[in-house]
Amino acid sequence: MDTERHPSSRNTVAILSRGDAAARSNATPQNSRFVRVFEALAAVGIDARPAIYDESFTETVRDELLGVDGVLVWVDPIHQGKTRADLDAMLREVAARGPLVSAHPDVILKMGVKEVLYQTRHLGWGTDTHRYDSAVAFRAEFPSRLRASGPRVLKQNRGNGGQGVWKVEALPNADGIVRVLHAQRGCLPEEMPVEDLIARCQPYFGWGGCIIDQAYQARLPDGMIRCYMSAAKVAGFGHQLIKALIPPPPEGPDAPEAQPGPRIMHGPSAPAFQALRKSMENEWVPQMMQALDIDETSLPVIWDADFLYGPRDAAGGDTYVLCEINASSCFAIPDEAPAAIARTLKQRLLSTRKVRTG
């Protein structure tokens, strides 16, 4: 039997994140990293509580989630070797039995994976992008594409923190040898036969299902722009100078490791990003929803699109290339985002209640 939810004037929501039994027993809104989200939800009349998840107590968490009206999920695709396979199955069950779940696992599988780069490559944010559905196709197609088109970036379909993301370039006058750089922090360039790289990437065809191959963007040193979205509206921006996929300077083995720059947060009205905001709200997000068959009410209450600067246009202006969408665990967020999350969630819970009550 489902846990009973008592109708009241206030909705109840659980904010779900990963942790162990100790974290679960000690969790409060006040000591949570999502404290600003809890405060924003309270300000619009939503009672929110933390819910800590681990595979060792899945059933307990499931019963807890069945007792609330909505669940906001912040869990990475991969964490210390654990995937979201068990969690996603549980969240599908919870959503099917009533509570609103954001982001729903099925929506993540459409937009929060690297395959979205291939499915939406025809949009204004797209670039030269290919998909390999099997190790056989990868081995047959990738080496010739690399030789013909210059440096590429390979991405496993599901991952975070740079896991499974590689810059690859063919070495001149060295047939079959490539220079690779893994995007995880602390990794250094390596040279190896392309067959060794293909073997190293073969496990990506397991849980993730495919490998995505994009052209390397020469303006990567100019930084990355993170466009934060609440449903179909921009909730803010973050600009960061990044280290991933940029080879370190030749300073010797004892030089300190270069660190990425801090992400500078901006509100949705930041003048520097209004062209990007207009493209996202008026063109790219509506086009993405159509391409992926997602309706606006299913978009996550918080997600982000990471952009690199593409080649300058004919007038010398910036263009933008999508490098990934984060829908599983979008955090940290701009100061304006918690209020946007609260507004979006309140509207959805109100619509859900109207449907349930007829």
Rank of each mutant, 00 (worst) to 15 (best):
Gly316Arg: 09
Asp335Leu: 01
Ile325Phe: 14
Ala332Pro: 15
Cys323Met: 12
Cys323Ile: 14
Ala337Leu: 06
Pro311Met: 06
Ser328Leu: 00
Asp304Asn: 15
Ser329Gly: 04
Pro311Phe: 07
Thr319Met: 15
Pro338Ser: 01
Leu322Ser: 07
Ala337Ser: 09
Cys323Phe: 08
Ala305Ile: 13
Gly317Trp: 04
Cys323Arg: 10
Pro338Cys: 01
Glu336Pro: 00
Phe307Ser: 07
Asp313Pro: 08
Asp304Met: 12
Trp303Arg: 06
Asp313Gln: 09
Gly310Arg: 08
Cys323Thr: 13
Pro334Asp: 11
Glu336Met: 00
Ala315His: 12
Gly310Gln: 07
Ala305Val: 13
Phe307Asp: 04
Val321Ser: 03
Asp306Arg: 12
Cys330Lys: 05
Thr319Val: 14
Pro311Leu: 08
Val321Ala: 04
Ile325Gln: 07
Ala332Asn: 14
Ala327Ile: 09
Ile325Ala: 12
Phe331Met: 00
Ile333His: 01
Asp318Lys: 15
Cys323Leu: 11
Ala305Cys: 12
Pro338Arg: 01
Asp335Thr: 03
Ala337Cys: 10
Pro311Glu: 11
Cys330Gly: 04
Asn326Glu: 12
Ile333Ser: 05
Pro334Tyr: 12
Val321Gly: 01
Glu324Thr: 12
Pro311Ala: 08
Val321Arg: 12
Asp304Leu: 15
Ala337Trp: 02
Pro338His: 00
Asp306Phe: 13
Leu308Trp: 03
Ala315Leu: 12
Ala332Trp: 13
Asp313Val: 11
Val321Tyr: 02
Ala314Leu: 14
Leu322Ala: 07
Asn326Asp: 07
Ser328Val: 00
Glu336Asp: 07
Cys323Asn: 11
Cys330Phe: 03
Val321Phe: 01
Leu322Pro: 03
Gly317Asp: 06
Ala314Asn: 13
Ala327Pro: 05
Phe331Lys: 00
Ser329Pro: 02
Ile325Cys: 15
Ala314Ser: 14
Arg312His: 04
Tyr309Thr: 10
Asp335Gly: 02
Gly316Trp: 07
Pro311Trp: 06
Asp313Cys: 10
Phe307Ala: 04
Glu336Ser: 12
Cys323Gln: 09
Arg312Asn: 03
Phe307Arg: 04
Ala327Tyr: 04
Pro338Glu: 00
Tyr309Asn: 09
Tyr320Ala: 01
Gly316Val: 06
Asp304Ala: 14
Asp313Trp: 11
Ala305Pro: 06
Cys330Asn: 06
Asn326Gln: 08
Pro334Ala: 13
Arg312Ala: 04
Ser328His: 02
Asp306Ala: 15
Ser329Val: 03
Gly317Thr: 03
Ser328Tyr: 00
Gly316Asn: 07
Glu324Asp: 13
Ala337Pro: 02
Ile333Gln: 08
Tyr320Cys: 00
Ala337Phe: 01
Leu322Tyr: 08
Ala315Cys: 09
Leu308Arg: 05
Ala315Gly: 14
Ala332Phe: 13
Phe331Trp: 02
Ala337Gly: 02
Thr319Asn: 14
Ile333Pro: 04
Cys330Trp: 03
Asp318Met: 13
Gly310Met: 08
Cys330Val: 14
Ser329Arg: 10
Trp303Asp: 05
Asp318Ile: 12
Asp304Trp: 10
Trp303Asn: 05
Ala315Arg: 13
Asp313Asn: 14
Asn326Trp: 06
Asp318Val: 11
Ala315Asp: 14
Ala327Val: 03
